[in-house]
Design a protein around this nucleic acid. Structure first.
Lengths: 209, 209
DNA sequence: ACTGTCACGTAACATTCGTTACGCAACCTA
DNA sequence: TAGGTTGCGTAACGAATGTTACGTGACAGT
């Protein structure tokens, strides 16, 4: 076998180029030539590693999901304050730094294409349900010691849509939704959801914690 | 002047076709030929009423914004319960019926294109700020009688992103976010934001109010 | 050195798109 | 009835895109 190359790495590099193009030109500007240009190669190389455009997008999507999942799973679990843990995990879904902002852009771009593709919808559906389940467990843990509210499910949903809404707005208009605003809103939402679990919260005086 | 035709109406009809195409094929499937087909006419007629595709999209967008604004401005104001009024206005941003669902699909589709178009971003930015301001006034009114919390701005933001997140998820996966779930989450979010303003809230027993 | 395989660049291909030009029918005015 | 204007269908055009085919150099096995 002559001239062996690490296929996985090449594919990852090209997927990185996909992200870059989506980030600055949107999904509508995502062409094989643009990807090749961003990757500093030719379209021939792109087609050499991906059968067609659909496969290219699928790989870029899976890389995104893996990255997100890895970051969350890398969180230390258990020992610390349950509320801090919940907050830390939830924060992983927010575009608080450049890396996560890029991910959020890709996420939101792909999310809308999900609507018209039944296969992608199913994939999204189970992933979303899993995310809701994970947050439910964390919220329940953060509530331990208090009687479980009857509308816990709805509270978790409120948290989930809060995160999605924050991410969406931060992606659309980053200047209007800077990281500190995102953090404050999330923190406030957790206060509301946990309803005084953190007694005497003085968020308005120490927004950054 | 021979064969006079109501230009405004024709343009509205064609914009309706744009919505229809976006709804079932997404923005990527929005071609002049698809629009003409959905409108039951030819591409010649479309180009006769719109200089180019950009003008067509701009009109479809403006129709969407006008529809949303009209629905909100048509709300009766004042006499009733401030919280009910806030709830009613906020509900207008949710895809609770077929009409609003269609609007939400178009809204979310156009929203993402905003990111890569500075002109659209400015337009969105002022519109969004206006929306936040309106909700702020309503929340403040619903809070009257209680001391104004120091983090009122953040609470309004939490409401706004909750609405956006609900709409986004309902658009992406309608089955997972049916109207009654949306209503419950919004209602719960209002409870949290107004913090016991509706004393003895028994949402968990009477979710539908 | 010869051969085959892998990596990849080049380029042609058909398709699809937005756009533009052309043509005809309808209808008003004179 | 002749001419001009408007409404709109038809079709051609160039540009861009995804895909495919072909060619070439690099390297391993023999």
């Amino acid at each position: 076998m002559p001239r062996e190359v690490d296929h996985a790495q090449r594919r990852s590099e090209i997927s990185g180029a996909v992200w870059q193009v989506v980030s600055e030109s949107g999904l509508e500007g995502l062409t094989l030539r643009a990807v090749a240009s961003a990757a500093g190669c030719t379209t021939g190389m792109v087609t050499h590693y991906f059968r067609d455009k659909k496969a290219l997008l699928a790989h870029a999507r899976s890389v995104m999901h893996r990255r997100m999942a890895d970051r969350i799973e890398a969180m230390p679990v258990g020992a610390e304050d349950p509320r801090a843990h919940l907050s830390a995990v939830a924060e992983q879904a927010l575009p608080l730094d450049e890396e996560r902002h890029l991910e959020a852009v890709v996420w939101s771009s792909f999310l809308l294409t999900t609507r018209t593709d039944p296969e992608l919808l199913r994939e999204h559906s189970v992933s979303h349900a899993s995310w809701v389940r994970r947050l439910t467990a964390l919220v329940r843990a953060a509530l331990s010691g208090e009687p479980e509210p009857g509308d816990l499910e709805d509270r978790v949903r409120a948290l989930v849509v809060c995160l999605d809404g924050l991410a969406l707005n931060a992606v659309t208009d980053p200047d209007a939704y800077p990281p500190d605003l995102q953090r404050r809103v999330l923190d406030g939402q957790l206060d509301l959801i946990l309803e005084g679990n953190r007694e005497g919260a003085v968020r308005s005086l120490h927004p950054q914690g």
